[in-house]
Simulated scan of single mutants.
Amino acid sequence: MTTRYARKTYRRTCICALTGLLFGVASLVIAQQKNIFTEEVYSRVEALFGKTGAADVAKWRQLVNSIENDDIDEKLYQVNRFFNRFDFVDDLRHWRQPDYWATPIEFIGTGAGDCEDYSIAKYFSLIELGIPKSQLRLMYVTALELNQPHMVLAYYPSPTSVPLVLDNINRRILPANQRRDLAPVYSFNGDGLWAAKSMGTGRKLRGSGPMKMWDDMIDRLNSVMLGDTQEQ
């Protein structure tokens, strides 16, 4: 896929509006995405990312609709496969920021993102497909062969099971105990932050910095949904 990020200049207010449309009031908005993606929304997407970006967002929506009644293994496979086709570009080059968490619309619309963007897009897509967020964790790890921080999405079939790893480096969905190239650091979702324990569930932490970052992001996006999209 051809990366389109270099050809676009975005107004912050418009990006905030689209970000709010996707994340909004977190789970409530996710559960109602089918009603959110109206012709008006697609027009906004096209204005920001062009016809190609809007067409790719439409393909995402078609995918979600087409697999909503499939079994969990198929949902994991199709979502992982869909997002892994986009180009990897680091935040500094892509967004001119050292760390930027893109919404799935921004990720798909620009045709590129980094490891957080792959993982976040998969996370929200699978929640929309009916997988409880208690079974999903965004997991920070160290990619040992690359010697760098990395993020993957972990799916837990049960609270005590070894999670399956959805990744953009190794595109096969494998149990965490078969990913010896990854060293877990911590994981989180909309419910909390966990210290990693051998890629398992780990110990829940309270009042920690990364969880506060997540909460702050959701709070900012909720304020966008209420109409606070002015430049700051």
Rank of each mutant, 00 (worst) to 15 (best):
R4K: 08
R4A: 12
Y5I: 06
A6L: 13
R11D: 13
R12Q: 12
C14Q: 11
C16H: 14
G20I: 05
F23P: 00
F23L: 12
F23A: 10
V25W: 15
V25L: 14
A26C: 11
A26T: 04
A26G: 08
A26M: 03
S27N: 06
L28M: 07
I30Y: 09
I30W: 08
I30N: 05
A31T: 02
Q33V: 04
K34R: 14
K34F: 05
E40H: 12
R44L: 12
A47W: 05
F49T: 06
F49Q: 05
T52C: 05
K59Y: 01
W60E: 00
W60F: 00
R61G: 00
L63M: 15
D71I: 10
D73W: 10
V79H: 04
F82C: 13
R85V: 10
D87N: 15
D90C: 02
D90V: 09
R93D: 13
P98A: 06
D99T: 03
W101R: 13
A102Y: 00
T103I: 00
T103N: 05
T103A: 08
G113C: 09
D114E: 07
S119N: 01
S119G: 01
Y123A: 05
Y123D: 01
I131W: 04
P132T: 07
S134M: 07
Q135N: 12
L136K: 04
M139K: 09
A143E: 14
Q148F: 07
H150R: 05
V152Y: 14
V152P: 11
T160L: 05
S161A: 15
V162G: 00
N168W: 02
I169T: 04
L174G: 03
L174I: 02
R180E: 10
D181F: 09
P184M: 09
V185P: 02
V185N: 10
V185Q: 15
N189A: 04
D191S: 11
D191C: 08
G192W: 08
A195N: 03
A195K: 13
K197W: 01
G200N: 03
G202H: 11
R206H: 11
R206K: 14
R206F: 10
M211T: 06
M211F: 15
K212M: 02
W214Q: 08
M217E: 07
R220F: 03
N222S: 11
M225L: 14
M225P: 02
L226H: 12
Q230M: 12
Q230K: 14
